[in-house]
Design a protein around this nucleic acid. Structure first.
Lengths: 194, 194
DNA sequence: CGACGAGTCTAGTCATTGACAAGTTTAGGG
DNA sequence: CCCTAAACTTGTCAATGACTAGACTCGTCG
C-alpha cells in the first residue's frame, strides 16, 4: 500500500473489487464510480476498464463472486450436517448481513450484464446448491415438492434479509438480533405446528 | 402531448413521475436522468428540480406514492373481507408485479432521502396496515405473536416477489403463473398441515 | 383595473462521470 | 535478446446533477 507502485499494480482487479465493496457497503451501488475506484487504487482513471470492460462488468464480477460466496457458505452448512432447515435460512440471512455489497448487487439485474456466461453459471450453481440443501432436509418439514419447498424457504430467507436490511422490520418487533428473529420466524412456519 | 405547451406545463410533477415510472420499468432506476425526464415532458432541463429538489427527491416521492398504493391495495383486500392470509400475500405479490417501478424504488433506501418525513410516515402507515391485516386473520393460522406473524408473512411475500422479478425462481419449477405459484408456496407454510 | 409576489419555468455554467481511442511501459515466452 | 500481448496512461467527448440568475404567469389584494 505504501510502496510506490510500479507501472503494473500487481492485483488491480482485486483492489478495484475491494474498493467497490467498500463504497457499496457504505453508500450503495449508485455511489460507485469507476474513476473513484481507480483513484483509490492509485491508478489512472481508465485502468479499471481493462479488467472489467464496463461499470456493469465490474458489478457483474461482484455478483458472480457473491453467488460463489453464498454457495460456499451454504455448502459448508450442509457439510457440517445441519439437519435443521432453519439453520440453512440462518446461513442465508447471515450471508446477506455479512456481505451486504455482494448481496445488494447479486439481486439487482439492472446493474449487471444479465447474460454474461459466468454470471448465469454462478446463478445456476447456487440455485442448485440451495435446492439440494432443502432436499436434504427430513421430508416432514418440507412437504413432497422440493421445488416448491425451495421457493418457500428461499423466499422467506430472502425477504427477511432484504426487509431487515431496508429497516422495514424494526417497527414490528422489539429490538432483537436478526439471526434469532429469523430463527423464530422460520420456526413459526416450518415448525411441527402453527 | 401535441398541444403547444404554454409557459406553465400544467402538471409537470405528475408528468415527470410518470416518465420516471416508464424509464424505471424498462431499464431500472439507474437509467433515470432528470434531464431525460425533462426532455420527455417537453420542459427545460432544470424544471424537474423545482418539484423534487433532487434526483433523490424524485425517487423519494415515487417511493411514497408506492407505499400509499400498497397500503390502498391491501386495505381494499381487507375491506373485501378476504379471510385467507394467502390472499393478502397474493395482493402483495400482485402489487410488486403490477407496479415494478414503485416496488423497486420503495425498498432501495440508498436511492432516496431516508428520513424525509412524508416517506417515514408512509412507511409507518403501510407497516401498520400490513400488521393489522395479519392480525385480522384467524388466530390458528398465525400463532400468538402478531409481530412475528407479520414478519413471516411479509418476508415470504416480499422474498417471493423479489426473487420472481429477478428471475431467480424460474429454474426451480415448471412454468407457472406467479400468483398461483405463490398461493401454493404460502399454502405449504401457512396451511393447516405441512 | 392594475400592480405585485409567489410559484413555475428557462438559460447558462461547472465539476464529475462513463466510454472510447491512441500511445507507453512492462513482463515473459520464444 | 527481442517482441508480442497484457497492463496501464493520457487525452478527449457527450451526458449528467446541481447550482445560479433571470424571465414568465397566474391569482390575489389593494
Amino acid at each position: 500500500m505504501a510502496a510506490p507502485r510500479s507501472y503494473h499494480h500487481g492485483d488491480l482487479r482485486r483492489a478495484v473489487l475491494d474498493a467497490a465493496i467498500e463504497v457499496i457497503t457504505a453508500e450503495g451501488p449508485g455511489a460507485v464510480s469507476l474513476r473513484d475506484l481507480a483513484r483509490r487504487a492509485g491508478v489512472s482513471h481508465a485502468a479499471p476498464a481493462h479488467h472489467f470492460k464496463d461499470k456493469a462488468g465490474l458489478l457483474t464480477a461482484l455478483a458472480v463472486e457473491g453467488y460463489e460466496l453464498l454457495a460456499a457458505a451454504f455448502g459448508q452448512a450442509l457439510g457440517a450436517g445441519s439437519a435443521r432447515l432453519e439453520e440453512l435460512g440462518v446461513r442465508y440471512v447471515r450471508f446477506a448481513l455479512d456481505h451486504p455489497a455482494h448481496f445488494e448487487v447479486m439481486f439487482r439485474p439492472d446493474l449487471h450484464h444479465r447474460d454474461a456466461p459466468e454470471l448465469v453459471a454462478a446463478q445456476e450453481r447456487t440455485g442448485r446448491v440451495l435446492r439440494d440443501g432443502v432436499a436434504a432436509m427430513p421430508a416432514a418439514r418440507r412437504g413432497d415438492d422440493t421445488g416448491l419447498a425451495t421457493i418457500a424457504a428461499w423466499s422467506l430467507a430472502h425477504g427477511f434479509a432484504t426487509l431487515w436490511r431496508g429497516d422495514n422490520l424494526r417497527r414490528l418487533v422489539a429490538d432483537r438480533a436478526p439471526e434469532d428473529l429469523f430463527r423464530n420466524t422460520a420456526g413459526l412456519l416450518f415448525g411441527e405446528r402453527g
